[in-house]
Amino acid sequence: MERIHDHDPAMPASWNRATKPHRFCPGCGHGIFLKALGEVIDELGIAERTVFGCDIGCSLLAWDFLNVDSVQTHHGRTVPVVVGAKRANPELIVIAYMGDGGGYAIGAQHLVNSAMRNEKITVLLANNTVYAMTGGQMAPTTLPGQTTGTTPYGRDPDATGQPTLGPEMVAAITSNSAYVARGSVSNYPRLKQYVRQALENQLAGRGFSFVEALSGCPTNWHTNAKQTWSYLDDEMTKYFTLGEFKTPGQAEGGEDK
């Protein structure tokens, strides 16, 4: 009998087939985000000169996910590593891939300052509202009222603040040559389009590019498939507006176009 494994499933050429199936939990958003990245790398034909950097947290599980040169760094430090590589060798296409903790908490100063300097790099950040690898603690993006390992009674904004609005912040501090967007793994075509524009911005040598993707974490959210998608689409979007916040040469927006 023919088994499903006898056929290679369709996957981007820039994916590392030897490491598939991947290591992310069932229902995790990372695989979708990385599929968008893989397809865009294929379409742009840049695998040979791409350097993929990933952070600590679940993003580190992507260290051998792609069939491109990759480096897994420390928590929050992926941005400076790819900045260093890009400055030293500007012909490289560099990508810093991280979660909300790496980008908005422990590595926030690197995100802010590399954006301010308009580094010609691409930052891709998966926002799943929790520190997932360490067991589901509160993240900068945890929603008000959301229960996590360190907010067992729900996040109290009076005590712990409001969810971090990353793309809004990055859009506010970058120059007009930056590209800034927020997509969601629940709208794959749109997310892929954002990733493509981000990388094209770097290819054109224009400036900083940043895409946040709303992403599900059923393991730490303790949700089934239906609940996961519902949380992603209905709850997270109450706080996190989808769309492009800055496209090169244009004023900042925030609406889904």
Binding site: V51, V71, T73, H74, R77, V79, P80, V81, V82, V83, G84, A85, K86, R87, A88, N89, L92, Q109, H110, V112, N113, S114
Partner: peptide, 16 residues
């Protein structure tokens, strides 16, 4: 922006 960044960027430069 800080020493962490300077150190890690140095690693990026070497790796490149």
């Amino acid at each position: 922006e800080d020493e962490l960044s300077a150190g890690f960027a140095t690693l990026g430069g070497v790796m490149a």
